[in-house]
Design a protein around this nucleic acid. Sequence first.
DNA 1: TTCATATGCGTAGATATAACACAAATATAC
DNA 2: GTATATTTGTGTTATATCTACGCATATGAA
Lengths: 224, 224
Amino acid sequence: MKNKIQLTVDAVVFGYESGNISVLLVRRKYKPYKDAWALPGGFVLEKENLEEAVQRELSEETGVKINYLEQLYTFGDVGRDPRCRVVSVAYFGLVKPNAFKLSASTDAKEAQWFNIQKLPKLAFDHKKILKIAIERLQSKITYEPIGFELLDKKFPFSDLEKLYTTLLNRDIDRRNFKKKITSLKVLDELDEKVSFGPGRPASLFSFNKKRYFQLKKEGIIFEI
Amino acid sequence: MKNKIQLTVDAVVFGYESGNISVLLVRRKYKPYKDAWALPGGFVLEKENLEEAVQRELSEETGVKINYLEQLYTFGDVGRDPRCRVVSVAYFGLVKPNAFKLSASTDAKEAQWFNIQKLPKLAFDHKKILKIAIERLQSKITYEPIGFELLDKKFPFSDLEKLYTTLLNRDIDRRNFKKKITSLKVLDELDEKVSFGPGRPASLFSFNKKRYFQLKKEGIIFEI
DNA sequence: TTCATATGCGTAGATATAACACAAATATAC
DNA sequence: GTATATTTGTGTTATATCTACGCATATGAA
């Protein structure tokens, strides 16, 4: 045994619904930072991979099922945990709106979605982790079609547009955006239409993941 | 003590000279993989940050001084080390040609530069780590001016061009490339000229890091 | 029936990219 | 000393992409 460093994983899970980006937080049950809000996560077991550890912790603490997960960064500064040296591998996840609702089995007091504009005080260095995760999300949606992981399977085009304006925090020209996305050939237009309130009904689209990978293999890159 | 997971750091350090990209490797002294080549690295001490650990290990094992270092990825699969569970935070570094020469103090048999086209068999999962590092290097030089970290302080423009053709493994139109770089306004043309063999002497340039950060703050982004 | 609202499609000017040709300054061979 | 090969250095044009708009269409509500 060479060292006494402890290894944990933390997950920054984003959800999106009608113009709001939220992040999943859990309330800490024990010291330190007892009762404070924190990112879901915990110690890695000796016989499980890092991703497995994240999925297990998320499932135990929140019941949320992730459909996109990638490693974000590893935070290992001395003193980030007052108890002892703890190095944490942070992950970055996205969930679709249906998983966005917390399962009834979880105590709503213990796991909750927070709008990223209205965050509570966070335990440890989780504020810093979250900040980096948001930057990653913002930059990544411009060159990888991960935005679709935040939408329903079928969605009107305006949902996609609104997602991008919200995430990138700037206006997007609807017509140019549509042209751009259309030229990437990753959307299937369905026959179905939906209508909310006044205005012309919108066609529903679905993201064609298969075609995306095919195009990617041919060197056609996604970029907004 | 919750677990027995060991934490290490590994460094993928790239050097460049006259059309050759090399990576720094060390020969292992102990089992497992005794005498095999591996990435420099080792166990993280309880009281040092991750970056400090990388710098210390690099200094101990190779004597090379790094001028650019960033975290690459954390490798934590079960079974990547036959002895026990070892999670390794890999870093990615670049050195200038002067540091490229291994210091006389180091035993050349123990630390060596290898052309990335002519690699020996590597210990552990270091081949995988190196592959990811190369991909990162290739993608990163297109949107961050890290290429300059691989060149001398003063360099002819053709050096920069050759670096890019080598790293990206494709031809670049010299005139368009020059226009692009010039428009970014991050190069200072010096009065000095150099001449190797036949051909018109070349002006020397230097990278203006200060101006780069200034432009970045104004939202002007580097992109090749 | 009129109005407000949201979707859907097209066009023109500006900007950036890609392709390409030739002049200038040196070392070397003769 | 002259011709030749070699390398650096710059400009121009066609093409593609991006940006900024205008207007028609289909609905709910007044």
